[in-house]
Amino acid sequence: MELTANYFLGLSAALFIIGLMGVLIRRNVLIIFLCVELMTAAVGITFVTFSRETNTLDGQAFALFSIAVAAAEAAVGLALILAMSRRTRSVDIDDFRSLKD
């Protein structure tokens, strides 16, 4: 069996959808956050695959940028989650409901 680009695109699509479902289904803020990170990482695989397929380097550069952005997101996100969980003693998204219609 030869490993073609389709396998890698399929892998990254599968990881992306797992992350997407995790965001929609799970109620723990930390897990939701990790699922978004999984989605971002999955996109990195797509970028590298396309980079190889099209013989250009743009995709690899983009993958590196996406990793850097994900790191910055983690710094801001964990700080916010920490501030929130100190106040509510919970990481369950359903407990954060002081703002609603």
Binding site: F47, T49, F50, E53, T54, T56, D58, G59, A61
Partner: peptide, 10 residues
Amino acid sequence: AWAYGLSGST
């Protein structure tokens, strides 16, 4: 990523 893959450039 798909827009890049389809056109080969960012």
